[in-house]
Design a protein around this nucleic acid. Sequence first.
DNA 1: ATGAAAGCGCTAACAG
DNA 2: CTGTTAGCGCTTTCAT
Lengths: 340, 340
Amino acid sequence: MKPSKITITDVARLARVSKRTVSRVINDSPKVGKQTRARIKKIIDDLGYSPDVQARGLASRRSYLLGLIYDRPDAFYIDKVLRGILSVCREAGYELVVHPCDYHSETLTREALSFVARLKLDGVIVLPPISEDDQLAAALEDEHVRYVRLASIPLDKPEHVVISNERVAVAEMTEYLVQLGHRRIGYITGPKGLISTRERLEGYRQALAGQGIEYDEGLVARGEYTFESGLRCSLALLDLNPRPTAIFASNDEMAVGVIDTARNLGLHIPGDLSVVGFDDSILASRINPALTTIRRPVREMARLAASKLIASIDGREEDARVGVILVPSLVERETTRPLD
Amino acid sequence: MKPSKITITDVARLARVSKRTVSRVINDSPKVGKQTRARIKKIIDDLGYSPDVQARGLASRRSYLLGLIYDRPDAFYIDKVLRGILSVCREAGYELVVHPCDYHSETLTREALSFVARLKLDGVIVLPPISEDDQLAAALEDEHVRYVRLASIPLDKPEHVVISNERVAVAEMTEYLVQLGHRRIGYITGPKGLISTRERLEGYRQALAGQGIEYDEGLVARGEYTFESGLRCSLALLDLNPRPTAIFASNDEMAVGVIDTARNLGLHIPGDLSVVGFDDSILASRINPALTTIRRPVREMARLAASKLIASIDGREEDARVGVILVPSLVERETTRPLD
DNA sequence: ATGAAAGCGCTAACAG
DNA sequence: CTGTTAGCGCTTTCAT
């Protein structure tokens, strides 16, 4: 064993001050003499001392841990989120505990609360679609748990959400299709009940309205954000007469399904049919032809969420309260082209 | 605020025993009277008491936290790993802290040690390619940190590895191609220096040898496990004369690159060229034609890794020491077919 | 089989 | 600005 762990006591002894003072230095309390602070800091450095997280936590009822609660959005999404959060955590001295769970579970809220309580998490970030669960949010609020939800609309107070405006992004993409000359644009929705499903569809409707195109319910098919549903819905859509000249799948997985179907029907993309998706997942750039789609600033959102949490923990409530609404951007690739 | 947290003292008081005895019950110590134990357990249940992790940790120098150290293998891999680990953690009362980092960082080892020390992690799981870093492993061993490495060969003591035999899997796939009639099988390796690169290539060589086919270095191109390298290598390989009739890309990303190149060259798959990959990533099933590939039992490996760690923590060293070698399995899809 | 008391390493009143 | 004194909630010698 090596020189058994250095503690605050060692630092205090060497600096000839009380532990309290050292503690103040560690916690950046202002009430320490400049000289003393410098001296203590030096000793801390020399010793390579770093405070014990558990002891600190026990005494201050904190944990220096953030939690990430999510269902099972696609793995790439999670990956980006992790990196976004951690880039902020690292500087601030926090670590991240992950908690994948089941959106449909009856005990979701209870489990989440237990997760938070058990680890005394200093804050949690909740991803869609779980972030849409107001009951969970209310429970967190009740228990005075700091949380931030990633969402597509302002479904909570500014300090509790980071928003990307999916409606606007979808509208923009729809307009882009219209500008390419498309009038009959099929649309494949997400599963019923999700806000993202509603918002994206709304973006589609609004854009059509804005462009003076009548909304035709027959051109809208209900998908599930899965590849299979993309297959199914596109089959139905492409069976229509006259056929839509473009299909807007509200996520990439389904868009890939559309492309598969089109291929099976002998339709050329983008010659006979333009296809667009949403997510800019890895699939979008790997598939052939490469998919025109919408990229959410996921990493940035995650970073902001973590920043808000940490700001709040540090008592900088104003910083935590700044509202942010990001807008996803259009990524033009090979599945779209002007209708001639 | 609610009835401020129930502590071990409350339980002890109500049970009219000392904290020590309650502690024994919590920790399943055998030295407690059957009656007493039952009584205490009941009270714990009634009160909904659950011990404070931090306090326990502080006193027993543990954390009930496991760590996951990885570079940035593909997101789906991570996702599966997380689920595997957590399925075990949940029952056992552990939580998982993630630590993505940079394989090439000079300070990798130091950072990892600091990560472990800072959180007093009870154990860590290391994923490839970082798991191949013997220096890191040695450092962990030195510091008496429990760890398990996911690997493709027995690069450590049984208690420190969970192995999937990639060599055998690649050999099997190669034989499969040979049986389809292929003789000129191009091969795209991974980046230099990785054990997986070496092992997979070795599987290819051995299988060829076993089938009486001479190993032709000209048919082997050095890739980087990236899509772009798949593009580049396949271009070189398909430029050969005579052309290989099949290409074995040692991961799916590169295989997708191969398919793209083939398409660009006007080659039909699998008519003119058979292509296989390794990983069974999401790409494999979404691409068209769907990719024949190799599936690693990732989730199972992760589960085993966590089990080993927990067994070791619980002092069940024999359980931790059982050696496991899993074999990835061949997934036949649409990119292969008999040579006529 | 059970208990008393001493910490684990740190923060938090409350002085001074 | 700095020190003293208590704990935070649990585990662990060492007795009994």
